[in-house]
């Protein structure tokens, strides 16, 4: 899968406007056509695509990810902290949206037809329909421009001298609040709908009626019997949402200029930085796929009726 993906990706990158030599040509007006041809040969750009892919892939396998042409640093050095930043952002927003959405979904499932249910339902629809980048812009307008409470963008305050761990954490947290909110709303919408339907499905089960008939308290029935069964379909949805969260992270990171891998993918494609674009794209997509796999396995752990034999 990863090999096919990387080959396709390589092919697509060759179709993008401009190649490394074009960049050199524009920066150096004295260059002659003979030089251009020589440079193309040097970089191996005159060879057919599959050969270039082979060369590129073999260097990757040896652990050499190449250099970034715009940042002038090895790609591996660039990628590490970015991946970590994105990981924090997406995990935090996933957690945040689950913390908000699951109680909302459950309570609206327990009280169908009430005002609370309608409000939660409306929030869910609204959340799904809000473009996350626009929400980000709105949040910036409200909280940074008008109120001036939170920074409009960035990852951390530069020039923070030797901060204590707590100060460091607070500083990073300050920059994370708005991106997390704007990234979470769509997820909250999805999760509210799913947890509501999963919970109302679970409440209709026969064993719930049995538990009630036994005279168990309402709390025990809901949390011990119904909720644990409602969790199973929820895990699937959460697993599938990794890719959505990462998709959203690209947009959010761009809006808030948060130094994550999504912004790296976007920036490197815009500025024609092949090595970075390809590696960061492939690694981030692979990460999402691995997350999906892990969630699939967890699914089997959570539900003993499913086995992978």
């Amino acid at each position: 899968m990863v090999v096919i993906l990387s080959y396709l990706c390589f092919g697509l990158m060759t179709l993008m406007p401009g190649d490394p030599v074009d960049l050199l040509v524009t920066s150096n007006p004295k260059i002659t056509p003979a030089d251009v041809a020589r440079l193309r040969e040097l970089y191996g750009l005159d060879q057919p695509m599959y050969k270039r892919y082979y060369n590129w892939a073999s260097t990757i396998v040896q652990g050499d990810l190449g250099y970034s042409r715009t940042y002038r640093v090895p790609v591996s050095e660039l990628l590490g902290p970015r991946l970590l930043n994105t990981f924090w952002l997406s995990m935090a927003s996933l957690l945040f949206s689950l913390l908000i959405a699951i109680p909302l979904g459950i309570f609206s499932a327990l009280k169908p037809g009430t005002k609370f249910d309608y409000a939660a339902n409306f929030l869910a629809f609204g959340g799904i329909a809000t473009p996350s980048f626009w929400l980000g812009i709105l949040l910036i307008i409200i909280f940074s421009v008008v109120l001036g409470w939170l920074p409009a963008g960035g990852t951390e305050t530069t020039g923070l001298e030797d901060p204590s761990f707590l100060a460091f954490l607070l500083d990073r947290g300050k920059y994370l609040i708005l991106p997390i909110i704007s990234l979470s709303l769509q997820q909250i919408g999805q999760f509210v709908r799913f947890s509501r339907s999963a919970m109302s499905e679970a409440m209709r089960n026969d064993f719930v009626r049995t538990a009630r008939a036994k005279g168990l308290s309402n709390q025990t029935v809901i949390w011990k019997h119904a909720f644990r069964n409602a969790l199973i379909p929820l895990i699937t949805v959460v697993a599938l949402s990794f890719s959505t969260v990462f998709s959203g992270a690209v947009l959010t990171e761009t809006v808030f200029s948060y130094q994550g891998v999504g912004k790296l993918v976007y920036d490197s494609i815009i500025s024609n930085d092949y090595n970075v674009a390809m590696i960061s794209f492939i690694i981030s997509v692979t990460m999402v796929l691995v997350m999906n796999l892990v969630a699939d396995i967890l699914y089997g752990v959570a539900d003993p009726r499913i086995s992978y034999k």
């Binding site: 697509l12 179709l15 993008m16 990462f246 494609i269 674009a277 981030s284 997509v285």
Partner: peptide, 23 residues
Amino acid sequence: DALLSLPLVPVLIVFAAIDLTKL
């Protein structure tokens, strides 16, 4: 299934950046 599991926005960005004149 493979297409469904891909994160869409980055994929779309890569595709949208393609210069059609090269095809």
